[in-house]
Design a protein around this nucleic acid. Sequence first.
DNA 1: TCGAATATATAAC
DNA 2: GTTATATATTCGA
Length: 192
Amino acid sequence: MESISLSIEHSAHTWFGCLVDDQDRLVASAFGPDPRKINTHLADYSKTVTGVSPALNRHSLTSEMIRRFDGEKPPESVRLNKDFISLFQRQVIGVLDRIPTGKVTTYGLIAKRIDSAPRPVGGAVGSNPWPIFVPCHRVVNGDLTIGNYSMCGTLGHTGTVTKKNLLNREHVPIQGDKIDRIALWKPSEKMA
DNA sequence: TCGAATATATAAC
DNA sequence: GTTATATATTCGA
C-alpha cells in the first residue's frame, strides 16, 4: 500500500471521516460529533492494518457518505478495500449489504444464514469498518429492540440513540423501543 | 432475570 | 503454538 488518505468534513452537527487507499477504495469510515475522535480513530486504524499513517486529503467519498447519511439513494456502488478483514467478516458483510433500506434483520438470523452463531455475528457486525456505507445499523436484537451500536470503537447509550436515529431516517417503523416486525427482513436468499 | 451455550477474534502464556 | 478471555447474542429454566 503506497499511501492512505484521511478525509474529514461535517454536515450539521455531525462529522464524517473516510480512509481511502491510493486506488480510491474505502478502507474505513467513521462518524460522530467529535472530529478529533474521528481523526484519531481512523488514523490509528490505518496504522494498525496498513502500517501507514494517513495524510489529510479531501476525498469525494466523504461527501458521498454524507449523502447516504441523509438518506439519499446511492448513485453508484462504492469500492471497498476488504484486504484487512477476515473471511468470516466478509460473509457477514455480504449479508449486511443486502438488507433493504427501511428494513432490519437480527444477529440470530444472519447466524443461521451463514451457519454460525449469534455472538460471533455480533462481533463481526460490531467491527464493521464501513459504517453508513455498509448498513450495520440495520442489525437489531432478536426481540426487535434496537440493540447496541459502537462509534469509533466505543460502545454505549449514545450509540444506541444514534442507531435509532439512523433507522428513523430510513423510515423503519418503531414503536417505543421496539421495531415493528413488519420491517423484519430475513436473509434467506443465496448470496450473489 | 440469570446462566449456559455458541463460534470467532484477540490477548496471554 | 496453545490456551484463556472477550464479544454490538440467544434461549431456556
